[in-house]
C-alpha cells in the first residue's frame, strides 16, 4: 500500500500555521544528512552535533523567510554550511600546505603486519581521508563533501552555495586533483 508522505513544504506551512510538531517531523527527516554534512566538513563529532543543533534552531527562527523558491533541503544545507563556516572561522585551522601536512602527520599508512585488528586498520584509513579533506580549502571541501558523501546533484550544490553549476564542476575537478595527489600514496600503500 502506498502512503503519501507529507512534503517538506507542507510541513513548513504547518509549522508556520502554529503546529510545532510539524517542525519536529522535519528535524527527524533531515537530522542525519545535516549531521553527516557537518561531520564531514568539521571532522569532529561534538562540533558536528552543535552545528546540527544550531542549523535547526536557525532554520526554525528564520522559517518565515523560506519562500519555497528552492528545495527545503537546499535551504537547510545552506544554513548548515554557513554554521560550519562560522564555527571554523572561530576555531581557525592552521593554514598549512599539503606538503607541510604530510610532514606533520605523515601519509604512510600503518604497516599491514601491525594492523591485526581490521577495525583499527579501517579507522586509520578513514583518518587519512579525513586529514586529506581537512587540508583542502573550504570551498573545495564543501563541494566534495556534498557530492561524494551527500550525493547531491550538481544543480543542487549550485543552489545550496548560490553559484553557477559550471563553478561547482570546476571546484570539484580542482578538489579531486588535489585529493588525487594527496591520496595516491595511500592508495598505493593500501
Amino acid at each position: 500500500m502506498q502512503t503519501l508522505e507529507t512534503t517538506d513544504m507542507q510541513l513548513v506551512e504547518q509549522t508556520l500555521g502554529g503546529e510545532p510538531d510539524a517542525f519536529g517531523v522535519l528535524v527527524r527527516r533531515w537530522e542525519r544528512p545535516i549531521y553527516s554534512l557537518a561531520y564531514r566538513m568539521i571532522g569532529s563529532d561534538e562540533d558536528a552535533r552543535d552545528v546540527c543543533q544550531e542549523t535547526f534552531i536557525s532554520a526554525f527562527r528564520n522559517l518565515k523567510s523560506f519562500r519555497g523558491e528552492s528545495k527545503f533541503s537546499s535551504w537547510l544545507y545552506r544554513i548548515a554550511i554557513n554554521c560550519c563556516h562560522s564555527r571554523q572561522r572561530k576555531q581557525p585551522q592552521p593554514d598549512v600546505s599539503i606538503d607541510e601536512q604530510i610532514e606533520e602527520y605523515g601519509l604512510e599508512p600503518m604497516d599491514s603486519r601491525e594492523s591485526v585488528d581490521d577495525r583499527l586498520y579501517r579507522d586509520q584509513r578513514a583518518q587519512l581521508v579525513r586529514r586529506a579533506l581537512a587540508a583542502l580549502p573550504h570551498d573545495m571541501r564543501q563541494v566534495i563533501v556534498m557530492k561524494e558523501y551527500e550525493g547531491l546533484k550538481f544543480h543542487e550544490i549550485a543552489e545550496v552555495l548560490g553559484i553557477p553549476v559550471s563553478t561547482v564542476k570546476t571546484r570539484l575537478y580542482t578538489g579531486l586533483t588535489y585529493m588525487r595527489k594527496r591520496l595516491e600514496h595511500v592508495s598505493d600503500s593500501l
Binding site: 537530522e31 543543533q53 526554525f60 584509513r125 581521508v129 561524494e148 588525487r180 592508495s187
Partner: peptide
C-alpha cells in the same frame, strides 16, 4: 585517477551514530 580517489574517499565511513536532535519549541 579520480575513480580511485572516489574509492578512497568512500573508505571514510561514519564512525559515530548521528544524534537525535531534540529541539524544545515553546509555543
Amino acid at each position: 585517477a579520480f575513480q580511485s580517489v572516489r574509492g578512497t574517499l568512500r573508505q571514510w565511513e561514519m564512525e559515530t551514530v548521528p544524534p537525535r536532535i531534540d529541539i524544545a519549541i515553546k509555543p
